[in-house]
């Protein structure tokens, strides 16, 4: 079964199939995997920090700091064990040369997202097994539920296995 994970969504699946998140720009795709129970979760994170927005948004799956704990709950409920979990991440690129809102910032949204995802993983004590982040191009992330293997591709045909 192939399941699409769209912006600000989290999907958890067991045993077999493919989880795909297409078109990661500054967004970060986060895959969690338990190789023992073969349980996989994939999230498409839009922004880094929910606290910046004072709870104005109702969808907590948009933000790294809130989406990752929610994904963890979901994957544990599906039968994964916390001690087995590993993570793989991709995305966080900078597609536009300049900050689109006109302001000058040393840190692109993509970079902030990567840092926030890594921080959340660290806080949950989940080891980061592989990453393909940064750069200036969009990515598609495919996660094989049976093996936990992750394939990254871009429009240029760039392919990397995590």
């Amino acid at each position: 079964m192939i399941t699409q994970v769209r912006i600000a969504e989290v999907v958890v699946q067991r045993e077999s199939g493919l989880l795909i998140t297409v078109g990661l720009g500054s967004c970060v795709g986060v895959g969690l995997y338990d190789p023992v129970t073969r349980t996989a979760g994939l999230a498409h994170i839009l922004l880094s920090d929910s606290r910046q927005f004072n709870g104005k948004s109702s969808n907590l799956l948009k933000y790294a700091d809130t989406a990752l704990p929610l994904m963890m709950d979901k994957i544990l409920k599906e039968g994964a064990l916390k001690k087995n979990l590993v993570a793989k991440i991709a995305g966080g690129s900078q597609l536009f040369k300049y900050n689109i809102t006109g302001g000058v910032s040393n840190e692109s949204v993509g970079k902030k997202n990567i840092m926030a995802v890594k921080k959340a993983l660290l806080e949950m004590s989940i080891p980061l097994l592989g990453e393909d982040v940064g750069g200036n191009y969009g990515r598609t992330m495919r996660m094989h539920v049976a093996s936990g293997q992750v394939e990254i591709s871009s429009l240029e045909g760039y392919i990397k296995l995590l």
Binding site: I7, V22, G23, G25, S26, C27, L46, V109, G110, G138
Partner: peptide, 14 residues
């Protein structure tokens, strides 16, 4: 680039 990547980036940066 990919439409999703571009639009996602715009929404995130904005």
């Amino acid at each position: 680039d990919m439409a999703g990547a571009i639009l996602g980036t715009i929404f995130a940066e904005a």
